[in-house]
């Protein structure tokens, strides 16, 4: 059974695309056949983070508009065998995507035997974000531990529960998951950021885990590598945990508190 998973947040710049790239890579590493779709028409970001921007010939809009076949537009990942990317268009405007067109692409991907179809949502709560979540079976809500981000996630949760296909057709609601990214335990302890408990208390959505604030995320993105593939990185391990919990595995939460560095580590900076 194929599952459509939307990665959404309301607010921009919180880590949706980073999370989409790492989670879809993580799912493919577990052997699932995964397609990840960039819904951010006009901005086109996912292909950069996945390191395939030079191989984009046809994009999601071309397929929706019937100008290319799905097969032509799906980019096969070079590192992970069962992973495919559908890039956004840089040149078209946001109205190029229609509900019918997107629905057709998702149906075709299901028919092609994809296990997971991951939809990387644009920011906002308007049309583009609503289209990205419309066909979802599950949602990964990405939030930063700060008030405005949590507020926007709350709004998108309201929309998820009212305006998705599942809601409109009275089916079981979308299964929700929460990922808190750019989490900085030191700043939480200093009271400069909301704690995990504060965020969960407000959103009341089942919690997959935190991704710590880490320089390696930007470095990985710059070199076109989903951070989950980075070795010896907290962010990679955290995403690995999140993927496992998403698949139902029980794993103890990590990276919630500041790692107390021993003298040796302090001296040698590790």
């Amino acid at each position: 059974m194929s599952k459509v998973v939307v990665v959404t947040s309301g607010k921009g710049g919180v880590g949706k695309t980073t999370t989409s790239a790492s989670i879809s890579t993580g799912l493919a590493l577990k052997g699932y056949k995964v397609a990840v779709i960039d819904f951010d028409v006009g901005l086109r970001n996912l292909d950069l983070i996945m390191g395939c921007e030079r191989r984009v010939v046809y994009d999601f809009v071309n397929v929706v508009q019937g100008e290319a076949s799905l097969k032509q537009a799906l980019i096969k990942d070079k590192r992970v065998p069962s992973l495919f990317i559908l890039a956004a268009s840089q040149t078209r405007d946001k109205d190029a995507l229609t509900k019918e067109g997107v629905g057709k692409v998702i149906e075709d991907l299901k028919a092609d035997g994809f296990d997971y179809i991951v939809c990387d949502s644009p920011a906002g709560i308007e049309k583009g974000a609503q289209l990205a979540l419309y066909f979802a079976d599950e949602a990964i809500i990405v939030t930063n531990p700060e008030v405005s981000s949590v507020r926007d996630s709350d709004r998108i949760l309201g929309i998820l529960q009212a305006k998705s296909k599942r809601a409109e057709e009275g089916e079981d609601p979308i299964v929700e998951h929460l990922v808190i990214t750019r989490y900085n335990p030191a700043r939480v302890e200093a009271g400069e950021m909301l704690s995990v408990d504060d965020v969960i208390d407000l959103l009341s959505v089942p919690f997959l885990g935190v991704i710590p604030e880490s320089e390696q995320v930007l470095n990985a993105s710059n070199s076109g590598l989903p951070v989950i593939l980075e070795t010896e990185s907290d962010a990679a391990e955290a995403y690995e945990d999140v993927v496992a919990r998403f698949l139902g595995e029980e794993r103890e939460q990590r990276f919630l508190t500041e790692e107390k560095k021993g003298l040796f580590k302090k001296l040698f900076g590790r």
């Binding site: 507020r151 709350d154 709004r155 949760l157 529960q161 009212a162 009341s204």
Partner: peptide, 8 residues
């Protein structure tokens, strides 16, 4: 029976 969320 559910939470009333921001914007609702």
């Amino acid at each position: 029976k559910h939470n009333v969320r921001s914007g609702q």
